[in-house]
Simulated scan of single mutants.
Amino acid sequence: MRILIPDAQFLDDAEIERAAAGPGVTFDVHRAVRETDVPEASWRACDAVICYHVIQYRGPWLDRLERCRVMVRAGVGFDNIDIAAAAGRGIPVCNVPDYGTTDVADHAIAMMMALTRGVAAYDAQLRADPVGAWRFDTPPLVRRVRGQTFGVVGLGRIGTAAALRARAFGMDVLFYDPALPSGAELSFGFGRTRSLADLMAGADIVSLHCPLTGETRGMIGAEALAASRPGQILVNTARGAVVDLDALFGALKDGRVGGAALDVLPVEPPEPDHPLIRAWKAQEPWIAGRLLLSPHAAFYSPSSIVDLRRKSAETVMAALAGEPINCVNGVVPRHG
């Protein structure tokens, strides 16, 4: 068995992956930024590929996967893989949806709390002026979270975990997820809306936990933000392109949206000249204390990385044994 990792995001020689895969498996590890950085022979010789987020696995390049019997995305999102093209070549694509569930949910709640309790704003103000800024009433978004409505877009694993954490803070929970069967909300005791507009109008905080698809790309745009409850806080730990950054800039600038906490952006790292990023960096008075950024880090903890790497290798081995898990394109793997 030969497993190719073209765009590895670790520095060792696949020690965790080798331990999970067991004897008789060879790992071909690269740290490429484009597919052409990996020797063509490596693509043609592999039985499986573990894909990170750097390379775009698309189109004719997949023809080089002559022996490949499975592609595993080391992560939850798989928008950098053309899963239909892989299916057309008989290659199942699997993901690892459960490695960082609690970490992302924790991060979403932490970002919400940092804004609603003014933690980040207090720290920034005191760093600039420890004496003059010794005031409790300066952050613009401080509020009591108990009794607020926490809105979730996408009630999957992470969305559910975030919703349960919000409820533990005494918040009401409302969600929008057209893919969830009717009645699922009864098992949680959450409120459900049948439209995004109703969710936006009904929630004080909206936390995004949906995948990036053709339907969700730009979903939080001008129309959705126009429906927002005044003063709403938007939290995005899902995919950056779900939010139209230009529309968010406008909604923050005119005061319709109270604040935003973004772990993900449409372009990463951010474009320094985007009006929103430029205003945030300069801490222009209108945005001070209203925008919080983190560097696509919600998934991260040392424990989650170990889980991700181990589960990626286990998912490969399960598929090669003819027992695929978490397949996202409906292909049954070929036996060797």
Rank of each mutant, 00 (worst) to 15 (best):
P60L: 13
P60A: 15
P60Q: 13
L62A: 11
L62W: 08
R64L: 11
R67C: 06
R69Y: 00
M71V: 12
G75F: 00
G75M: 02
G75Y: 00
G75T: 01
V76I: 08
V76D: 03
G77W: 13
F78G: 03
F78P: 12
N80H: 11
D82H: 13
I83M: 07
I83G: 11
G88R: 13
G90W: 00
I91D: 10
V93D: 13
P97R: 01
P97E: 02
P97Y: 12
P97K: 06
D98G: 02
D98V: 14
D98E: 06
G100N: 15
T102S: 15
V104H: 07
D106S: 04
D106Y: 00
A110E: 10
M111D: 11
M112D: 10
M113A: 08
M113S: 08
M113D: 10
A114M: 04
R117Y: 01
V119A: 13
A120G: 09
A120W: 02
A120D: 09
Y122E: 06
Y122G: 09
A124H: 10
L126A: 14
A128I: 01
A128K: 08
G132M: 03
R135A: 08
D137T: 14
P140K: 00
P140M: 01
L141E: 15
V142C: 15
V142G: 14
V142R: 15
R144A: 14
Q148D: 07
T149C: 07
F150P: 00
F150Y: 11
G151I: 04
G151K: 01
G151Q: 02
G151A: 07
V153L: 15
G156A: 07
